[in-house]
């Protein structure tokens, strides 16, 4: 029992050390410039029916057209329902063209607006978070690149109506864009090659092959 447990602990420790040795870049100068400040700093949660007072307070303190974050919207969707908002974030994944426009997922998390994607650095900032945005014809054509494992997509500033239960999206929470501005164009990042990890992989692959041959010989005997 002790031997396999010790071996397992050594393997895990080795993996942790190998990950720590990964070459990384310093994610500096990646903050998106030209972001308008958030309209309100309030990100209190509100529960439907129970916290109607909070909903009203947030709604009254927000001036239409000001910038909101997805976190604020998710924590109190009723406060921003059917209001004109400004929203900024990175287009990720795909541009889903439909009749009359396209759906895009626009993230406003730290990877989108501050540090850049977790490609060449290890500044982990939690889950992605963002809103669904409907870009009508004439706007979605301006998107030149979307975020994926190699790049940060276009960072856009959207001005549109936030709908808590959009009837054209089966009741989803959406922003119907009326105008957009490209704040930062698509940016590629290179995942630095982890030489040590590649060497360990090569060594272990050879050991695995040798062990297969050895096990077959033992079985034949």
């Amino acid at each position: 029992m002790v031997v396999p447990l010790t071996a397992l602990a050594i393997v895990v420790a080795g993996i942790v050390a190998l990950e720590a040795a990964a070459p990384t870049a310093e994610p500096t100068d990646r903050s998106v410039q030209g972001l308008p400040p958030l309209g309100i700093e309030d990100d209190r949660p509100c529960r439907r029916v129970v916290d109607d007072q909070t909903v009203m307070e947030i709604r009254e303190s927000f001036t239409q057209g000001e910038r909101v974050s997805s976190t604020q919207v998710f924590r109190c969707p009723a406060a921003f329902d059917e209001l004109m908002v400004t929203y900024a974030g990175e287009v990720v994944g795909d541009v889903l063209e439909r009749r009359g426009g396209a759906w895009v997922q626009v993230n406003d998390d730290a990877y989108a607006l501050e540090t850049g994607p977790l490609i060449d650095h290890r500044q982990r900032s939690g889950f992605n978070t963002g809103l669904s945005v409907w870009l009508p014809d004439g706007l979605h054509e301006r998107i030149e690149g979307v975020g994926n494992a190699e790049q940060r997509g276009d960072v856009i500033l959207v001005r549109g109506i936030l709908d808590r239960t959009d009837p054209n999206d089966g009741g989803g929470l959406t922003v119907r864009a009326e105008e957009i501005e490209i704040l930062a164009p698509v940016t590629e990042f290179e995942d630095p090659f982890h030489t040590l990890q590649a060497m360990v992989a090569g060594l272990l692959a050879m050991l695995a092959l040798v062990s297969v041959v050895w096990a077959r010989r033992v079985a034949r005997r």
Binding site: L18, H194, Q197, A198
Partner: peptide
């Protein structure tokens, strides 16, 4: 995706 490949090989 070379780093992912080496991770899976390990």
């Amino acid at each position: 995706e070379w780093n992912s490949a080496s991770a899976f090989v390990i």
